[in-house]
């Protein structure tokens, strides 16, 4: 209170009037930040140091949850492997495919917005609905994909019930919802100045050289953006894997977010779940920082020194 008073006195009248209006306008966010972000953030840090089942009071354990997870947990490293597998394949493949599709859409074609619409729609359709369709399509007994495979004389493929195939199947399903990335890439490609291509043509560059030396450098900021958003999203992916495989078969699709949900709301291990959440948060922060750091070497911000 007093410090605010001192600060206010130092401000000119118009400045303090601005401050009051400013705080007035942002007050919903400020209250929400304190109540729905800052408090839960601190509380989850505390819970991660306890054993808490919602019924009895939290028991303080120190770092035992973390130590147990890293050294003495039968599932943790498997969950980590599953998640890294999923993220490591779905993000680069999804972004690479999105970029190529966007390049194709950016060439001289008739009906661009039709194609773009069809590719974009799967990414906004309710995940529950698309999960139902994929469950049905990939079903081993009466799924359409296996119907085609068996009618060609091959064995039916247990896409979701085989521990080796379940993760790749989920990667394929995730690539189907890359439409938003396609739209973002397409917008970026359309922003590349035509004069650059003309200059490259004058210099005798062929199509591949133009793609390599004009298109890609000019879109690197958007590639970085999509990489970061894709990574954060894939790391937290819950709904579609949960509905398709519920972590199975044999825990092969037990991803981080699923494992966390299971611990919190099925086993009611709030302390362990909070520790998992903080580990996830740390991984995301570290990875994002690494990407930003290395981005100075490969991201080109046009015109900036």
């Amino acid at each position: 209170m007093t410090t605010a008073g001192i600060k206010l006195r130092k401000l000119s009248r118009s400045e303090s009037k601005g401050l009051l209006w400013g705080l007035f306008f942002i007050s919903p966010w400020l209250l929400g930040f304190l109540g729905f972000t800052l408090y839960p953030l601190i509380a989850s840090g505390y819970y991660s140091l306890t054993r808490y089942d919602l019924i009895r009071e939290p028991v303080f354990l120190g770092f035992k949850n973390y130590i147990n997870l890293f050294t003495n947990d039968p599932h943790f490293w498997n969950v980590m492997y599953n998640t890294l597998f999923y993220v490591g394949f779905s993000v680069p493949l999804g972004i690479g495919a999105a970029f190529l599709i966007a390049t194709l859409l950016n060439s001289k074609i008739v009906g661009r917005s039709f194609f773009r619409g069809i590719i974009y729609i799967p990414s906004i359709v309710p995940a529950v609905c698309s999960a139902m369709v994929w469950l049905f399509l990939l079903n081993i007994q009466y799924g359409a994909i296996n119907a085609i495979i068996t009618s060609l004389g091959f064995q039916a493929i247990p896409f979701l019930s085989n521990p080796t195939l379940a993760k790749p199947s989920l990667v394929v399903v995730s690539m189907w919802t890359q439409g938003a990335a396609v739209v973002i890439f397409l917008a970026a490609l359309q922003d590349v100045p035509r004069s650059l291509y003309e200059a490259a043509t004058v210099d005798g560059a062929n199509a591949w050289q133009k793609f390599r030396n004009v298109t890609i450098p000019m879109t690197t900021p958007v590639i970085l953006f999509n990489l970061i958003m894709g990574f954060i999203g894939a790391f937290q992916e819950f709904t579609v894997p949960w509905l398709l495989t519920q972590g199975g078969p044999m825990n092969s699709t037990e991803f981080f977010a699923i494992h966390l949900y299971r611990n919190a709301f099925i086993y009611l291990r709030m302390g362990k779940a909070s520790a998992l959440a903080w580990i996830m948060f740390s991984i995301i922060v570290v990875f994002t920082l690494i990407l930003f750091r290395t981005s100075a070497r490969w991201v080109y911000y046009g015109g900036e020194e």
């Binding site: 400013g22 705080l23 942002i26 972000t37 509380a43 977010a257 909070s274 903080w278 948060f281």
Partner: peptide
């Protein structure tokens, strides 16, 4: 208003926070 950009930066930082961290509390 003074401090606006710093507060806005904090607002943007909250987008980085996975929902799982605040989910339990």
């Amino acid at each position: 208003w003074p401090g606006r950009d710093a507060v806005f930066f904090i607002c943007m930082l909250t987008m980085m926070l996975p929902w799982q961290v605040t989910m339990v509390p």
